[in-house]
Each structure stands twice: as C-alpha cells, then as structure tokens.
Design a protein around this nucleic acid. Sequence first.
DNA 1: CGGGATCCCTTAGGATACTG
DNA 2: CAGTATCCTAAGGGATCCCG
Lengths: 213, 213
Amino acid sequence: MAARDYGQYGGITRALELVGERWALLIVRDLLVGPRRYGELGAGLPRIPSNILAARLKELQAAGVIRRVPHSRIIIYELTDYGHELEPVVLAFGAWGFKALGEPRDEQIITPDSMTMDLRTAFRPQVAANLPATAYGARFGPAELLIRVDGDTLDVRRGAGPVDLAFAADASIRRLISGELSPERAIATGMVEVLRGPGILLDRFASTFHLAA
Amino acid sequence: MAARDYGQYGGITRALELVGERWALLIVRDLLVGPRRYGELGAGLPRIPSNILAARLKELQAAGVIRRVPHSRIIIYELTDYGHELEPVVLAFGAWGFKALGEPRDEQIITPDSMTMDLRTAFRPQVAANLPATAYGARFGPAELLIRVDGDTLDVRRGAGPVDLAFAADASIRRLISGELSPERAIATGMVEVLRGPGILLDRFASTFHLAA
DNA sequence: CGGGATCCCTTAGGATACTG
DNA sequence: CAGTATCCTAAGGGATCCCG
C-alpha cells in the first residue's frame, strides 16, 4: 500500500511518490472540479477497478492530498489545501498533453470532469476580459456542461441552465480549440450543432478557449 | 511497448500516457539538466533496471519527447522541443513535492541532476536580481555542483571552479532552503561545513534559494 | 444502494546475467 | 558502453461478492 519509492531524495521523486501511481493524478484532477463520492469518482474514471480506486484513495489520504468526509450517511472525498496546490501543475500538465491529442480512438470517452479541466486549461482570461459576459451550454455526448464566462473568470458546472449559446459537439471540439478548425466550418460541416442562440457566438467561444500546438 | 491508456480523451490523460509511466518523468528531469548518455541516465536513477531504462527511452522517443542522437561512437539522448516544454511542469511539480520532503531515509541518495533541479525549483530570480553576482561551490556527498547566480539568472553545473563560497552539506540543506534552519545554526551545528570563503555568504545563498511549506 | 473487499488472471516492473 | 535476454514478483485489470 505504501507507494513505491525511487531511492532518491528530491522534490520530484517525492511528488511522484505521492501522486505518481497510476490513476492517482486523475483522481486529483476530478477532485479539482469539486468534491466527489466514491461512485462518482469510479464513474469518471472509465474501467478503473474498484480495488484500485479504494487503494488510491487510501494512499492519497495518507499522503495528505485528499480528505475523507462523512456526510450523514454518504462519504465525500475532497482535496486538502495541499492537494489543491496541485491545480497549476495539473493544468499545465493538461495543456502539455492537450497539444499531443490526435483524433479520439473509438473506446475513448469524454467525461464531464475531464472536459471541465480541459476547458480550464484552454481558458484565456486576458481575452475573455475584453468580451461580454457569456453563458454557453455545451453537450458532449452524454455530458452536459454549463460554461459561464464573466470578465476574466470562468465557471464550469454540470447540467443545463439559461445560456446565450447552446451547442452539441463531439471530440472534434478539440480541433476548434486548437485552431485547426474555424467556427464557421465546424458548424457548416455539422461537427458542432447549434441548438439555441446565434451561431456567431461560437467565434467568441473559440477566442475564449484556445490552445494551439 | 505502447503505454497503457486510460480509455479517456483529454489533455491530462494524454500527458499521462506519454510520460506517466514509472521512471519516465525522472528521465525527463535529468534530461532537462542536459543531454545524457544511457549510462549517465542509469547512474542518475538509482536501481532502475537496465531493461526498464531501455523501454522508457524507446517509449519517450516514440512519444516525441526525446531524441536519440548518435555522436560518432556514442549515443546521446536529449529532449525534443516538445519535451523541453515540460520544464515548467516539472519545476512546479518538484516544488510541490519539495514541500512534503521530510528527513531523508537511509537508502535515499542525492544525485547531481536531482539536486540541480531542486535548486532551479527553489531559485528566486526576483531576489537574486537585487544581490551581487555570486558563485557557490556545493558538495553534497559525492556530488559537487558549481552554482552561479548572476542577476536573475541561474547556472548550475557539475564540477568545481572558482567560487566565492564553497561548502559541504548533506540532505539537511533542505531545512536551510525551507527556512526551518537558519544559516548561522546550519554552520554552528556542523550541518553545513564552510570549506572556503566567508560563511556569511550562506545567508545570501539561503535568500536566493528559498521554498517554504 | 453506496462503499468497498475478495478472487483470479494478466502484464508491467525488478533483479541479474549476458552480448555486440 | 549500450543495450538484450531471462526469470520472477508484485501491481493492475476485471468480475463478483459483501456489508451497513
């Protein structure tokens, strides 16, 4: 149960001992979106074995990265302050990996939490600050996100709500964010389907969320 | 040989597929210090099995993170541009882990490359910019580093050279950097041994390299 | 039903030895 | 020096079962 060590004394080896095991950083990623229950974490991590999830939660707790909070009958997992300090690392790491994303393989899915973190990664506050406050409703397969941009702040949460633009997309949203695909062509080719509101707002979306290779 | 995937389409999962395997990020860390040969990498990664090192190098190469460069008879590994973009991530990750470092266990060693990266992590350019240019010679067990600070730039390399202050320390150097131990006490208790130059310069060192929990 | 624990099997990782 | 080859252990994967 103790994470395997590297026989070395240093910052990076220590970090890897704490969150370097398989699945661990993905648990942290999902908890950065918000506190989650055991079942929610399992649902957001496709095919993670239940025993591995349980083991990682114990290890992360022992490492002081997460906390186990019983709420009446149910149990909530949340990041400690120290765990929360991983946010810039996870975002930067995600930005790096985003650039290497190709087309999705068939068995790959998009979960609400992973999409939320990718949006945070691609968010450009300095651009958004000069644009009007906008609410987007985005549906990626089964996942529906409510994306609110106001000034230089971003708020993403699950579910629906009043929005200026509602659209449905699949993984090709990546090509919109990377700039490989223009908003016009995304709509014209049907890769992004506008459900409500003026399609021109997709331009604003693409300016707000941008991360090029 | 293909790294195991996570069945998910997103930036962080992609990053973990590329450099998330055990040892991989440590190889990247050492290559951030400079190009290295196979044997040098093995020496800097205590107890890494040779077959694992070979496997990781192939995977990292296939991932576009490192490059294999034959130089006449010998072979050099170096980061690609894309691999080099991991530098801020590795530094931030190392800073996070540094805060959780306790006392070293007996079998833990300090390698020149890991110490170099820890120094880069703890370096405070804005503080250094207001101090005179200084060269330190630091010996950590068998590893000897030449640390040159000039304005807001830092240069660390192996070996000796003309320095303003030469000192020997062990892993307790961490407590100096974290601020748990004052430079005066570090010298008084013998944890840091001044070999050459005025010991007062250790104050400057502690101001320049600081990373508190 | 949420939150796990247990089982068995597969595969990656570790130790050591060996080779061009 | 720069890797392969081999053997073995331990961690991960998948399904199922359990308990409050």
